[in-house]
Amino acid sequence: MPSAKLWLALQDLWAGTRAIHVWPMLGWLEVKQRYRRSTIGPFWLTLSTAAMVAGMGPLYSKLFGQPVSGYFTYLAVSLVLWTFVSALVNEACTTFINAEGYIKQVRLPLTVHVLRVVWKNLIILGHNAVIVVVALFFFGPGLDWHVVLVPLGVLLIAVNGVWLGILLGLVCARFRDIPQIVASLMQVAMFLTPVFWPAEMLGRNRWAAEVNPLFHFLEIVRRPLLGQSPDALSWAAALAVTAGGYLVTLAFFQRYRARIAYWV
């Protein structure tokens, strides 16, 4: 009965999302755990990103022929967002593998483990946001009302992190080579996606950025922070990927949800 399986998959998603006494705590403890005995804690990651921005900013603005102050803000926003997006993709692969102990012993909705990962990365993004605030303060540009789109964009990325965590988590639990493949692809994607260089530099070849869904997810948050008006194409693409992602994920999740406990 395929409809019964779909129902169970949806129930897992719903019950997992509602378990707000579980995944926020697990995600938060993971952040705390990683940095428990260091003084500045998760801000170490912030510092390393900041060092990258400060180091690369002057050099790459020359390389790409961009005005320094504008490029600084661009690079800061891009790197912080990329760190978030790539962590979501990479950690999606190990979502269920890392939760093996829980999955084999207790009945928890699988979605709990996915939300834990997404929540943890949202907390880290919150720390890294300091860099963006500093860059905006010193290098501008001033912000207009479009900035209300920033939290919406971040939320949409996080919502995509959920289906990605289920889909990649499931596939990677079965095929253990996939995490390595994904990690390599994300490495390449960092250079192919306009992170260090603005898409405008492509000129007539801008399509090379626009066929890349990662570009659109960066853009929906990045443009309002850079004082640019939102791009309807990017929002449309991001929403389309969201819808498509959930459809594909549900197809896999309903089929293989019960198998995950045997795979991890």
């Binding site: 378990a19 006494h21 579980v22 705590m25 697990l26 403890l29 705390k32 755990q33 428990r36 005995r37 102990g101 829980y102 012993q105 207790v106 928890l108």
Partner: peptide
Amino acid sequence: LGMDPEATGHENIFLRAAIM
């Protein structure tokens, strides 16, 4: 299961409870 060595005993009570 799920107890976190870096968390306090108090935190671990809530953690274990949530898992149960």
